[in-house]
Write a protein that binds this DNA or RNA. Structure first.
Length: 558
RNA sequence: UGGGGUGUCGCCAAGCGGCAAGGCACUGGGUUUUGAUCUCAGCAUUCGUAGGUUCGAAUCCUACCACCCCAGCCA
């Protein structure tokens, strides 16, 4: 077992290992990832994807992609397309074709008929409201429906009439006949087919009755030969029902359901309903807005598939519910990008430096490493000129010795370039610093000053004449509350009003403008950035900040 | 007051009767042309609580407490 296997170990691997050892697995392991196409996939789904595909990979089995499309009212083809793209972007490929629960509607219908013939299902005409009443409560048993004892013949005719569109939506349903006094409410004659006069994105108008999740999921698993059907904890109460159908229907296999705790992360929400609300209320620009915890959003934000996979591994798989610290996700992406992102320089709040002893008009190409400790990332050329921009925040007229940047009368090193001495400050009538006049030491390229005094600080810069303009979008957490969806309050009240700030007048080193969309960089001393997937161009460069660099100084200052 | 779950460091999470892994966060030292990275060190005498069994318990038993899920013709 490799080291990665050890960290990726979890109770499900233990169960499967045991199933293999004790001969319960006739063939190989088959899992499935079963999204409903009613929204984009989010980080919580990423955990499930990594788990299901990861398990299959680990045990040499396979993982299917099956859309759980039993509710045409909420589903769309656009989501189906986006979901497939997300899974593949994460680095996984499902075995065989894309599958749909709707592929099995005919079989499911036959199963329903079989249940009716066995006297284990009946058509019920109770209204939704009546059905709720008859169901009882958590503490009181339910009562039998007055339609419970219809004959199989009558039920068959009724069910067929339902299928033929002879009844209105809600008029009748097909129910499994189990036990109205079961302490588990899911067993109180659950509804297994309902009338929905809706066009389905896969089956068109072939059906006007659709099976419910409970009647669909386990049977679909059985049809596909899924061996381990892994879902989240809230389906635990459905397991007895899942098993009941498997036992009472002529299914070709006996899959087993296992549950794990879903992923929660603080300062965000992981619920399709809430994410959809953010989109519908125009709080974000869409499902793939870089602030969204969707896979597409994180991709646009600059996350890498590897970071997401590593994060899922770090978080682990267990049955106890918790809330993972956003810092863990941030660590995962910083860790990847630090190792792999080429370095570059970008000044976001420019202050002009005039180096009076540097020749006017001269442009000198300085070589700089693409990465401080990865020669394979090559070298880039930085044009150096008499006037350069630095961050306004990197200059002070006076400061204590803890300030390791440019101070009037003191020296600082320009990253990958020369050591500079700040000699004079030029201000406007309001007293704002307009520019700083400096002198440079020509002997300090790749060398310490001859006086042996090494400058304390190193700051980034961009040539004023050779640099390029760029737009940078700074993203912050979408919510300013650790648990935005806790309590009765409306989670939208906790949206961070400053989650996005657009900085138009940034200066980037010239070579950066030509990068391809989705190229990732570390802007030195600042953070990790990605060229926007859709809006970046060489003419108008646009970068999204994925995540800031860790900043112990900023922390100490605050 | 029904049923199903879960409780191990600030946050995840191993552990399955023999003397509490790891990661994140945090704190302190070192290296550094990124206040980054890297690196070294520190960080649960204690495992929801209370009893009990045992030479020995986070691991077994009992009771209690807390939190989560279930009353969609959603998944």
């Amino acid at each position: 077992m490799s080291e990665q296997d050890v960290t990726g170990n979890n109770f499900l691997r233990g169960i499967i290992r045991k199933d293999i050892e004790e001969g319960r697995l006739s063939g190989s392991l088959v899992t499935r990832f079963p999204p409903e196409p009613n929204g984009f996939l989010h980080i919580g789904h990423a955990k499930s994807i990594c788990l299901n595909f990861g398990l299959a990979e680990h045990f040499g089995g396979q993982c299917h992609l099956r859309f759980d499309d039993t509710n045409p009212a909420k589903e769309e083809q656009a989501y189906i397309d986006a979901i497939q793209e997300d899974i593949q972007w994460l680095g996984y490929q499902w075995a065989g074709p894309v599958r749909y629960a709707s592929d099995y509607f005919d079989t499911l219908y036959d199963y329903a008929v079989a249940l009716i013939n066995a006297g284990k299902a009946y058509v019920c005409e109770l209204s939704a409201e009546q059905a709720r009443e008859y169901r009882g409560t958590l503490t009181e048993p339910g009562r039998n429906s007055p339609f419970r004892e219809r004959s199989p013949e009558e039920n068959l005719a009724e069910f067929e009439a339902m299928r033929n569109g002879e009844y209105e939506e809600g008029a009748k349903v097909l129910r499994a006949k189990i036990d109205m006094s079961a302490p588990n409410i899911n067993l109180r004659d659950p509804i297994i087919y309902r009338i929905r006069k809706q066009t389905h994105h896969q089956t068109g108008d072939k059906w006007c009755i659709y099976p419910t999740y409970d009647f669909t999921h386990g049977q679909s698993d059985a049809i596909e030969g899924i061996t381990h059907s892994i879902c989240t904890l809230e389906f635990e109460d459905h397991r007895p029902l899942y098993e009941w159908f498997i036992e009472n229907l002529p299914v070709p296999a006996e899959p087993k359901q296992y549950e794990f705790a879903r992923l929660n992360i603080n300062y965000t929400v992981t619920s399709k309903r809430k994410l959809k609300a953010l989109v519908d209320e125009n709080i974000v620009a869409g499902w793939d807005d870089p602030r969204m915890p969707t896979i597409a959003g994180m991709r646009r934000r600059g996350f890498t598939p590897a970071a997401l996979r590593h994060f899922c591994e770090m978080v682990g798989v267990a049955r106890s519910e918790g809330i993972v610290d956003m810092a863990m996700l941030e660590h995962a992406i910083r860790d990847d990008l630090d190792k792999n992102a080429p370095r570059a320089m970008c000044v976001m709040d420019p202050l002009k430096l005039v180096i009076h002893n540097y020749p006017q008009g001269q442009v000198e190409q300085l070589g700089a490493p693409g990465h401080p400790n990865r020669d394979d990332l090559g070298e880039r050329q930085l044009p150096f000129t008499r006037e350069v921009y630095i961050e306004r925040d990197d200059f002070r007229e006076e400061a204590n010795k803890k300030f390791k940047r440019l101070v009037l009368g003191k020296k600082v090193r320009l990253r990958n370039a020369y050591v500079l001495l700040a000699e004079q400050v030029v201000k406007d009538e309001q007293g704002n610093i307009v520019e700083v006049h400096c002198s440079y030491d020509p002997d300090t390229l790749g060398a310490d000053p001859s006086d042996g005094v090494k400058p304390k600080g190193v700051i980034h810069w961009v040539s004023a004449s050779e640099g390029r303009r760029a737009t940078v979008r700074i993203y912050d957490r979408l919510f300013n509350h650790a648990s935005p969806d806790r309590g009765g309050e409306d989670f939208l009240e906790h949206v961070n009003p400053d989650s996005l700030s657009v900085v138009e007048d940034c200066w980037i080193e010239p070579g950066l403008a030509n990068c391809a969309p989705e190229s990732r960089f570390q802007f030195e001393r600042t953070g990790y950035f990605v060229a926007d997937r859709y809006e970046h161009s060489a003419e108008q460069p646009v970068f999204n900040r994925t995540i800031a660099l860790r900043d112990s100084w900023g922390k100490a200052e605050a």
